[in-house]
Write a protein that binds this DNA or RNA. Sequence first.
DNA 1: TCCTCCTATTTTGGATCCAATATTGAAAAT
DNA 2: ATTTTCAATATTGGATCCAAAATAGGAGGA
Lengths: 234, 234
Amino acid sequence: MSPDEARRRPPTAQQFVLAELRRAITTGRLRPGAPIRQDALAEELQVSRVPLREALKTLQGEGLVTYEAHRGYFVEMLSLDDLREVYRIRELLEEEAVRRAVAVLADADLDRLEAAQAEVERASAAGDVLAMATANRAFHMTLFECAGMPRLVRLIRTLWDSTDAYRSMYYGDSGNRERVVKEHRATLDALRRRAADEAVATLNVHRDHAVAELESVLDDGAPRRERAGEPPLG
Amino acid sequence: MSPDEARRRPPTAQQFVLAELRRAITTGRLRPGAPIRQDALAEELQVSRVPLREALKTLQGEGLVTYEAHRGYFVEMLSLDDLREVYRIRELLEEEAVRRAVAVLADADLDRLEAAQAEVERASAAGDVLAMATANRAFHMTLFECAGMPRLVRLIRTLWDSTDAYRSMYYGDSGNRERVVKEHRATLDALRRRAADEAVATLNVHRDHAVAELESVLDDGAPRRERAGEPPLG
DNA sequence: TCCTCCTATTTTGGATCCAATATTGAAAAT
DNA sequence: ATTTTCAATATTGGATCCAAAATAGGAGGA
C-alpha cells in the first residue's frame, strides 16, 4: 500500500474517529457546549467506544473538548475572553516562528509559499469556504515550519485547531476572503525581502482582523451549553 | 468523602495511572526512549490496558510520550535542541504571564508567593530534592496563575511537565538549590515593587541557568533509545 | 405547591477476550 | 557468509460485556 493511501484512510479506528470528530467540531456539526454521547457516536461511526474514547482523550489534550470524570466529554465552549487569550498566545508564538523562519528562509521555501498562496487565491475566487480554510492554514503552517522548531509548530497548530469551530464562518464572506488574499500577498512581499518586522506586522494585522470579526459575531452573548438536539453525524 | 480524600486517590483508574506514569517518567523510572509495554505496566499497576492506554494518550498530547500506530508508546527522548526549544517557548509564554500578573498583582497574591517561597527554602535547607522540585513549581505556577490566563498557564504547565525527567537531577546539587532560593528572592523583590521588566529578567536568568546546567550534563551525547532492561515499576 | 428521598434508567469506566499487525528467529536459497 | 522468506511469537488495536456512577423521574411527606 502506498504512503498516500495509508494517509487517506487511517490505519487505526481511533485515527479515523479523530479525523471525523475534528471535522464535526470544525463544521459546527457538534456544537460548543454539547455533551458527547459515546454510545450514539460510536454507533454512528461504526466503531466501538474504545477507539472513540482514545480519540476524545487526544482532543481533550488539544483543548477541543473538556472532560469530567463519570460525566463524560463536552465540546469546548470558548468565551470571547478565551478566544482573545488563544489569539494572544498565537501572536507570541507565531512571531517567534516567523522571525526564525525569515532568518533561514531559502528560495525553495518561498516557492512553496507561493504555491500555497496560489491555492488560497483559487479557493477564494471559487468561493469554496472549506478549501479556503484548508489553504489558508497550509500557507501559514508552511511558513511556520521553516523555523525548524517542531514543538513550536505543534503548539501553534493545536491553537489553530482549538478555534477552528469559531473560524469556519469567517470565510463565508467574500470581503474577508479578498482581504486574506491581500494580506497574504503583503506577507509574502515582506518575506521575499527578508523583512522580519514587516512580516510579523502584516501577520498581526491579519490575525487581529480575524479576532475583531469574531468579536462582532459573538458579542451578542456567549454560546450556551446545549444538552441535546444536535443533528446526527452523517 | 472529603474533597481532600477525593484528590488523594483519583476516582478513576486512568487518573491514577496517569499520575503514576508521570512520576515514573519524572523520576527516571521509565527512561527516555524506552518502549512502554502495556501488558507489563498494566499488571504492575493492577489495572487493565484500557485506562492505561487512555492515560498514555493524555501523555502523548503533552509530549511526554510518542506514539506509533501498531508499534506503541515510547517515552519521549528529548535532544539538547529539543530542550532548548522547550525552554525558548517557555521564555516567550512566561514573560507574557509575568507581565499580566504584575499588572494585576494583589497583596494577597504576594502573600501566597511568600508562602510558596518559604516552602522552597525549607526544602532547600533540608536537601529534599523531590520537595524542592514540587515547591519550586508551585512558586512559579502561583505567579503565572495571577495573570488570569488559564490556557496560557496550562500550556506552560505542559511544557514544564515535558522536561521534568531532565530537570529532576538539577536539585541534587546544593549549590543549585541555594541559587534557586536567591533567584526567587530577587524575583519576589521585583514583584513587590511591581517592576515587570526586572521580574521578567530575573526569571530569565533563573531559566537560562537551568538550561546551561542541563547542557553541561547532557552534552556528552544524547540519551539512547532503549529497548529493554528498565527496572520494574514498584 | 415545593422539597426530599428513593428507585429506575442512562451513561460512563473498566476487564476480558479476540483480531490484526509487527517483530523475531530460524531455515533455505544465493 | 549473506540475504530472503516464512512461520512462530509477542504486542498492540478493538469489540463485547459487566460494574459503577450519575441522572431523571416519580412517590411521599411537609
